[in-house]
Design a binder for these strands. Structure first.
Length: 707
DNA sequence: ATAGGGTTAG
């Protein structure tokens, strides 16, 4: 197509007066419209130049400037612009507003703020009329780079030059203030507008959505409709995003309906954001339905669906969709890789993770620091510390940032290697890398996992010295650390000292500590706070009922269960995964879908008997249902992590460590049992749960029984 | 002859 056009063009340049002038103009217009490469553009340029169209028809000049800038050749754009006004009739002549605006647009679109502002100042100095077309470009530059201070100056100039009530300029002002985070100023401009249209309404809705105030965004959406505006595709995208933030499944359905009824759903971007919205509301099934029905899909569609599966704890679905993606027309990009790497991290599959890493390398996609860090994190979470450390050491200078250090520190942390984490922490400071808030979360939790209380206290004290203000998550780490170590009262005192209202993570850490140490009274205090703060969070109900069950308070267990039921909450399904060669085997609790299930069930029963012979007593408090003790024992045997370990014992060679990943925290009966199994069979058992790694060997666990 | 609002990861 492109070749054909340029041949036609070549022919045309050497033919004279074949076509009448209007048709010629039309023809060039068409050529420019289809032009997608610099080579073709240069051909069209020289042809237009030969015909003298550039001197007399600013229309073409403008189009060339814009196209050059779009194709990344700003230099040629500027040369054209300069050439036009310097050599006209042999002496310098100021360019007109139209051409200046065009050049300004080229700079603004290319993100060249300083050149744009230079030109804007030049226009003012040379007396080139600044008009209503000029401001949107200038304001765009303020929004993207220069900031509100400069934006305010331009705002003043807008008012002084009398464009203060131009709809387009006002919308650009709203957007500028919004992007600079000046919500109040944006709202003020918006409120003063006499005429409003869809665009500025949408700008306001987007503003609140971006500021993570979804309710306010939705309120504005309703107000917009009340004033008779229907909205369009872009409005739908912003609204979908706001509902996604809210996580409200019912609203999601009505936004979907809104998009369908108004015919917006055919738009790929709208489809993408509806997919993302459903996924964020936890409704992956509907997300997939929308995805499957999309007429057209792009890379973002696939990424949205993939991350939807990952966010909802369904990494295996993400992996199979990823295979479908590779068979489609859309190529995986670095964002895809990032999503898939995190799916592998979640799954804890070393084999799949490595395969993905190789895929990333062989596809020659750009591996930036973010992706590299995610891959290192994946290796850490899959239990392959060596590869992660090797990647870290092989980083070139520019390829390593704070997050790289953080990944390593928190990785050592979840493996219980507190000393190594502390060493890295001081090494990064020696090397002049400034720790950030996440560094402190990582180091504090590393201290917590390793039971290094004094070191943890010292790090917490150091935070203020390094001018990192303790945030809620840091308090949560401290409560976790003190609580695990049994200093429950000190933890509770710390909570009371927090300057603002303690968050759910803080109370959650205390609740967990109460479960470990069997403290019902403090546990109830924590739980009552949690049920108010996060009434929908299933994990807290489960923890509290664990505490009650451990002290045989079955009436209370039942109460918590009823409370959950009345809220429509279900205990999330436990799921454990084990790798066997290149296969990945997943087990649910009491799973009978595995082809090996009969063998595995026999094995867990016989394991129980073997363990009992050397002193194992089932910990029945791990079963929340108030059933007969024998039934409880059976239920315990069928826990997903036990099934996976039993499978490993049966199928894997003696020398191989058995590595299992569980999505939730490992139950304390399983934890106890794995100690016995590791010693009876003389095998290494590695379990990664939702919280950390447990390395079982010779009857002991690396976590020191605090987890 | 020229313009303003947008989705995916962490």
């Amino acid at each position: 197509m492109e070749g054909l056009k340029s041949r036609a063009l070549h022919h045309l340049s050497h033919t004279h007066k074949v076509l009448a002038l209007p048709s010629l103009h039309h023809f060039y217009d068409h050529l420019l419209q289809c032009c997608t490469s610099l080579t073709t553009l240069k051909l069209i340029h020289s042809s237009l130049s030969t015909r003298g169209f550039l001197l007399h028809t600013p229309h073409f000049l403008a189009r060339l400037i814009i196209l050059y800038s779009k194709l990344g050749d700003l230099h040629s754009a500027r040369t054209l612009f300069d050439h036009r006004h310097h050599h006209h009739h042999g002496h310098t002549q100021a360019p007109n507003s139209f051409l200046c605006n065009t050049m300004l647009r080229a700079y603004a679109n290319a993100g060249r703020s300083y050149e744009a502002i230079d030109l804007y100042i030049y226009m003012q100095r040379m007396g080139v009329g600044v008009n209503n077309f000029t401001y949107p470009f200038v304001l765009k530059v303020c929004a993207s780079e220069l900031g509100a201070v400069f934006g305010e100056v331009v705002h003043g100039q807008v008012v002084r030059t009398g464009f203060g009530s131009d709809l387009f300029v006002e919308a650009a002002l709203v957007d500028m203030y919004a992007k600079c985070g000046e919500i109040g100023d944006a709202h003020e401009v918006f409120d003063r507008m006499l005429i409003r249209d869809v665009v500025c309404w949408t700008a306001m809705i987007t503003l609140y959505e971006q500021a993570e105030r979804p309710l306010k965004a939705l309120m504005l959406f309703r107000k917009m409709q009340e004033e008779g505006f229907l909205g369009d595709e872009i409005t739908a995208i912003s609204v979908a995003s706001a509902v996604g933030q809210l996580g409200d499944g019912r609203m999601a359905i009505s936004v979907h309906g809104y998009a369908v009824l108004n015919g917006f759903i055919g738009d790929v971007s709208v489809g993408n954001s509806i997919v993302g919205m459903y996924a964020k509301c936890g409704n992956v099934e509907r997300a997939r339905l929308v995805f499957d029905r999309m007429e057209e899909r792009n890379g973002i569609s696939w990424n949205s669906m993939l991350s939807g599966y990952t966010q909802n704890g369904r990494p295996t679905d993400a992996l199979s969709l990823f295979n479908q993606m590779q068979a489609s027309e859309c190529d995986p990009n670095p964002v895809t890789a990032l999503i898939m790497v995190s799916a592998c991290s979640y799954l804890g599959s070393k084999h799949l993770g490595r395969k993905l890493h190789n895929f990333v390398i062989s596809s020659k996609m750009d591996i930036d620091t973010t992706l590299r860090n995610a891959i290192m994190d994946m290796y850490m979470k899959c239990g392959d510390l060596d590869t992660a450390v090797e990647m870290f050491n092989n980083c070139e200078l520019g390829e390593r940032d704070v997050s790289s250090w953080n990944v390593l520190i928190s990785g050592y942390g979840v493996h219980g290697h507190g000393k190594e984490a502390l060493e890295l922490f001081s090494r990064m400071q020696v090397e002049g890398v400034e720790p950030n808030d996440i560094t402190f979360t990582s180091i504090l939790s590393a201290c917590s996992h390793a039971g290094l209380i004094d070191e943890g206290r010292k790090c917490f004290a150091d935070m203020t010295k390094l001018s990192v203000r303790p945030e809620m998550k840091h308090y949560a780490c401290m409560v976790d650390m003190l609580g695990r170590a049994g200093f429950l009262n000190e933890a509770f005192r710390l909570i009371k000292k927090i300057p603002s209202r303690p968050s759910d993570e803080v109370w959650g850490a205390l609740l967990l500590a109460c479960r470990i140490h069997g403290n019902t009274e403090l546990g109830e205090i924590a739980a009552n706070n949690l049920f108010q703060l996060e009434p929908e969070h299933t994990g807290y109900y489960v923890l509290m009922s664990n505490i009650y069950a451990a002290s045989n308070k079955w009436k209370e267990v039942e109460m918590v269960r009823q409370n959950m039921k009345s809220r429509g909450l279900k205990k999330p399904a436990a799921f454990s995964v084990i790798e066997f060669g290149t296969e990945v085997h997943g087990f649910h609790t009491a799973d009978q879908s595995s082809p090996y299930y009969r063998e595995v069930y026999r094995k867990v029963e016989s394991l129980a008997i073997e363990m009992k012979m050397v002193g194992y007593v089932p910990d029945l408090s791990c079963v929340l249902h108030d059933v007969e003790p024998e039934d409880k024992e059976h239920l315990l045997n069928y826990h997903s992590e036990k099934l996976a370990v039993a499978f490993g014992i049966m199928k894997m060679d003696q020398g191989m460590p058995i590595q299992v990943t569980k999505n939730l925290r490992v139950c304390s009966d399983c934890h106890w049992a794995f100690k016995f199994i590791s010693s009876i069979y003389g095998r290494k058992i590695i379990v990664r749960d939702g919280n950390r790694f447990h390395h079982f060997q010779g009857g002991r666990c690396s976590c020191g029984d605090y987890w």
